[in-house]
Simulated scan of single mutants.
Amino acid sequence: MELFDKLYDEQEKAGVRFVGFTTKNVRYDFGIVYTNMFFGKPLVVCMQTGRSTLLDPKDIENLEYLQKVFRIDTLEEASDLAEFFSEALPTSPFETQYE
């Protein structure tokens, strides 16, 4: 008996970058998985909390989103994180998966 419908089951050799850095008040440790899945959006994992998200350039501009997804206390800290991600993540355009 089939219990579920498999949507995908892909394997690939993905590039992974581990980055730790500090700002004036906060230390960050991230794992960034560069993959062809998810229309090229990198998977960003906070190594301290385990929280993760797919990020594209528009997400980086949304400080409230960064603040929410990574549970950041202030917009200043989110702005620091956005500055890091703007340099660390690819800037190529992404396609919308669902319309």
Rank of each mutant, 00 (worst) to 15 (best):
G40L: 03
Q48H: 12
K68W: 02
V19M: 02
I72K: 01
K58P: 07
L55D: 03
T22K: 04
Q67I: 10
Y98C: 04
E77H: 06
S79P: 01
V44F: 05
A14S: 12
E12L: 07
F30R: 01
E64V: 05
F84K: 02
R17Y: 10
R27M: 10
V45M: 04
L43V: 09
Y8P: 12
C46T: 04
D29I: 02
T23F: 00
K6T: 14
P90C: 00
L54F: 15
D56R: 07
G20M: 09
M37E: 15
K58D: 15
D9R: 04
Y34C: 04
F94S: 10
T22N: 11
P90I: 00
D29C: 10
F85E: 07
L7P: 07
D59R: 09
L75T: 07
P57L: 03
F70K: 00
V16T: 09
P90T: 03
Y8C: 09
D5G: 01
D56L: 08
E77M: 05
A82R: 07
E12F: 03
S92D: 13
P57C: 04
K58C: 14
T22L: 01
F84L: 02
K41T: 07
F4R: 13
L7V: 13
V44T: 08
L54T: 12
D59N: 13
T91H: 11
S52H: 15
F4M: 10
M37Y: 14
Y65K: 02
F30N: 00
S86I: 01
Y65A: 10
E64K: 11
G15T: 14
F30H: 02
Y65G: 06
F21Y: 04
P93I: 09
K41E: 05
V19R: 02
Q97M: 13
G15I: 14
Y34W: 01
L81F: 01
E77Y: 05
L63C: 02
V16G: 05
T91R: 13
V45E: 03
E64D: 08
D73C: 11
Y34G: 01
Q48C: 11
N62M: 03
E77V: 08
M37A: 12
G40A: 05
Q11D: 15
F21A: 00
R17Q: 14
F38I: 11
V69R: 06
F94M: 12
F38W: 10
L89W: 04
G15L: 15
T49E: 02
E61I: 08
Q11I: 15
I32T: 03
I72L: 06
D80M: 00
E99P: 14
P42E: 03
E12T: 08
D73P: 11
Y34A: 02
T96R: 12
V45C: 08
E83V: 01
D80G: 01
T74Q: 01
V45W: 08
V19Y: 00
D5S: 12
